[in-house]
């Protein structure tokens, strides 16, 4: 019974990692840059939802939709203002830029909302469901359901929208994609918007479990582990990787000596990088000259 309980909390934690990793992978797939500020974008989304729902008193659904809309615009703006000048620069420079962005976003959030933790008022938090001896918090169910719905939506989007193919082309060869008429820059802006919306969803879902404060973005470091375990560049891989990291973390902090819970994600990451660097869902081939 304890194992099942741990499994459920691990899965719901894993969904959060998976959602952040999903946003990372979206950007990586299209633009070949890793957004080290993904956790901070999530934090911004959670704070926005808090502002709409708690401060302005809007109904939750309306506040959530407004958060998504605003975060989409924010994501596109970040791409337009910061990332577009980096197009054609070495990937390292873009990576450093997102790190700087993370610091700036954290300072902005600290200035706007202060450093004390906040709780988001949601319709799905605080209750528990009982299945026999099993006790499941409704927020955990909401996280899993929300993740599933979001993944389904993204799958349909990339399966049926032409953008999905444009995105793949842009990532495989930016210059060639541009020559054949794919609006590479607009595709990138769209991907950043999409990724910011996914991050905002993750932020709203995780808000009842972990409080909202400017430092909540640091859990994105564990999402890197999730993304790499799944094979950076694979969308289902991101979710699967997130679930693995989440479940292992829960079990490690229960059954292993203290300290292993917090580091299990990093240990998985390093083991994965040594053993199978291309991840579970490999999308890379060895470069041939």
């Amino acid at each position: 019974m304890e194992v099942l309980q741990l499994l459920i909390s691990g899965l719901s934690l894993g969904c959060v990692y998976g959602l952040i990793a999903l946003g990372l992978v979206l950007i990586y797939k299209a633009t070949e840059t890793v957004n080290f500020a993904q956790g901070e974008v999530m934090m911004l989304g959670a704070f926005l939802a808090y502002t709409f729902v708690n401060v302005l008193g809007w109904p939750f659904a309306l506040g959530f939709v407004a958060t998504l809309a605003v975060m989409g615009v924010v994501g596109a703006l970040l791409e337009r203002v910061l990332m577009r000048p980096m197009l054609g620069e070495p990937p390292f420079a873009a990576l450093m830029l997102t790190i700087g962005l993370g610091f700036v976003l954290r300072a902005i959030a600290g200035a706007a909302w202060g450093n004390e933790p906040h709780t988001l008022r949601t319709p799905f938090a605080g209750d528990v469901l009982r299945f026999g001896e099993l006790v499941v918090g409704t927020e955990n169910i909401a996280i899993v359901l929300g993740t599933a719905i979001l993944c389904g939506g993204l799958y349909l989007f990339f399966r049926f929208a032409r953008v999905g193919i444009a995105l793949q082309a842009a990532s495989q060869n930016q210059l060639a994609a541009f020559y054949v008429g794919i609006p590479v820059q607009r595709v990138f802006a769209l991907v950043w918007a999409l990724s910011a919306m996914v991050a905002a969803t993750a932020g709203v879902l995780v808000a009842p479990v972990s409080l909202i404060d400017p430092l909540m973005g640091f859990i994105a470091i564990k999402a890197f582990a999730a993304a790499i375990v799944g094979g950076f560049g694979s969308l289902p891989g991101a979710i699967v990787g997130g679930l693995i990291v989440g479940v292992v973390e829960q079990f490690a902090s229960r059954y292993l000596p203290p300290g292993f819970g917090d580091t299990s994600a990093y240990i998985i990451l390093l083991v994965m990088l040594v053993a199978r660097p291309e991840g579970i869902f490999a999308t890379l081939q060895r470069k041939k000259v």
């Binding site: 070949e32 990937p91 560049g233 081939q285 470069k287």
Partner: peptide, 11 residues
């Protein structure tokens, strides 16, 4: 010199 990215990803 700007260099535009290409990857070896298959999917």
């Amino acid at each position: 010199q700007r260099s535009y990215l290409r990857t070896e990803r298959v999917r």
